[in-house]
C-alpha cells in the first residue's frame, strides 16, 4: 500500500518537477569541479541557533509538515517545489508507521535518510 503511494507520487509529482527543473537548468547543489573557484566552502548565513530555531524544528502533524515545507521553500525562493507540499503531506500521513523491528542497518550504504 505504502509503496504504491510512493510510486504514484514519484511518477506523477516528482518526475514532472524533475523535468521542469532540468528544463530551466536549475541545480539544487553544485555537481562539477570548478577550477576557477578559490574555495568550495559555503559561508553560512546563519552561524548560530536561536530560540526559534530550536523550537520550530519538530513537525507536529501533517498540516504542520505542509506549512513548514512551504515556509522553507518560500524562504529559499524555490517556488517550483511548493506545488508538492500538499501531496507530500498526504504521502507522509499515509506512511506513518511504528518502527520496523527487524530492519537491519544496510551494509552497503551510508545511512543518510
Amino acid at each position: 500500500m505504502g509503496n504504491e503511494r510512493i510510486e504514484d507520487f514519484f511518477k506523477h509529482e516528482l518526475l514532472p518537477v524533475s523535468r521542469k527543473v532540468k528544463e530551466i537548468r536549475k541545480a539544487y547543489f553544485a555537481n562539477d569541479f570548478d577550477e576557477t573557484a578559490p574555495s568550495y566552502f559555503v559561508n553560512r548565513m546563519k552561524i548560530s541557533m536561536n530560540k526559534d530555531d530550536f523550537e520550530n524544528g519538530a513537525v507536529s502533524g501533517p498540516n504542520n509538515f505542509e506549512k513548514q515545507l512551504e515556509s522553507l521553500w518560500m524562504s529559499q525562493s524555490q517556488y517550483e517545489l511548493i506545488t508538492l507540499k500538499a501531496s507530500l503531506a498526504d504521502l507522509a500521513k499515509s506512511l506513518i508507521v511504528t518502527e520496523e523491528l527487524d530492519e537491519d542497518v544496510s551494509p552497503f550504504i551510508y545511512v543518510m535518510f
Binding site: G2, N3, I6, E7, F9, F10, L14, L15, V17, S18, R19, V21, K22, A27, Y28, F29, L81, L84, L88, L91, A92, L95, I96, V97, E99, F113
Partner: peptide, 25 residues
C-alpha cells in the same frame, strides 16, 4: 527530495527507501 528531483528517474529505489524512513518515521 531535492537530490531525487535532481537525479530524476534513476532515483526511484532511493526515493522509495527514503520515504519509508524519513516520512514514515
Amino acid at each position: 527530495l531535492k537530490s531525487c528531483i535532481s537525479i530524476g528517474e534513476r532515483s526511484k529505489e532511493q526515493f522509495t527507501k527514503a520515504c519509508a524512513s524519513v516520512l514514515g518515521i
